[in-house]
């Protein structure tokens, strides 16, 4: 007595590696959360700067500009690896995923190494003054997220390499690229704030 109308969905796929997936939306929300956090911190940095007569605070050297600027190159290029991996995940191309993830990882590690080398040129720590607190908060938070995502990418790479992957892992590769684009994208305003703000918004009275 099927007096009700029915919709038969047995023909629909049981997964989808695209922005139709709930996981993609979940990941997007996480980028919103982190984006808001960094946005507030950047606003707070400039608010604080406006209250100070001398910027950077006395004793703080201007950060070096060369190395962090160069580090942008591998960082931005790493997105290409991420994109490659993500497109390959959609097409279920194992080789493409491996190559893409590997490229992503290598370039990201290079950029990270350059960043860590650069830290030694900062002559202030987070205790020194208010600028130090902000600069190290930016560096600490972003690097934390960065490393966390690298670990996640590495785990995905391992899974693909040893063949333990299915639609869920492919979806993982896809949404991992969303996070990676975000981390690269958000670094640009942070980079400008840390390295250029003392130059263009500084004053020495």
């Amino acid at each position: 007595m099927t007096e009700f109308r029915t919709i038969d969905v047995s023909g629909l796929p049981s997964y989808d590696v695209s922005s139709q997936s709930p996981l993609w939306w979940g990941q997007l929300m996480i980028t919103f959360i982190e984006g808001t956090m960094f946005g507030i911190l950047i606003a707070a940095y400039f608010y604080t700067r406006l209250r100070m007569d001398v910027w950077p605070p006395p004793g703080d050297q201007y950060p070096h500009l060369l190395l962090p600027s160069l580090a942008l190159v591998p960082l931005i290029l790493s997105c290409a690896g991420s994109y490659w991996a993500s497109e390959s995940a959609k097409k279920n191309s194992r080789l493409g995923m491996i190559a893409g993830l590997l490229l992503n990882l290598v370039l990201a590690v290079i950029a990270l190494a350059m960043r860590i080398v650069e830290w030694h040129s900062l002559n202030f720590n987070w205790k020194a003054d208010i600028q130090g607190s902000y600069v190290w908060a930016f560096l600490g938070l972003h690097t934390f997220d960065y490393i966390a995502d690298l670990v996640f990418t590495a785990v995905l790479l391992v899974l693909v390499l040893i063949g333990r992957y299915g639609p869920k892992q492919r979806l993982g590769v896809h949404v991992d690229s969303v996070v990676w684009y975000f981390l690269v994208l958000i670094w640009i305003p942070i980079y400008v704030t840390i390295y250029w703000a003392p130059v263009f918004a500084g004053s020495q009275q």
Binding site: T6, I7, D8, V9, S10, G11
Partner: peptide, 9 residues
């Protein structure tokens, strides 16, 4: 006018 989904595993 009611309807239901069938065919889920």
């Amino acid at each position: 006018e009611r309807a239901f989904v069938t065919g889920l595993r």
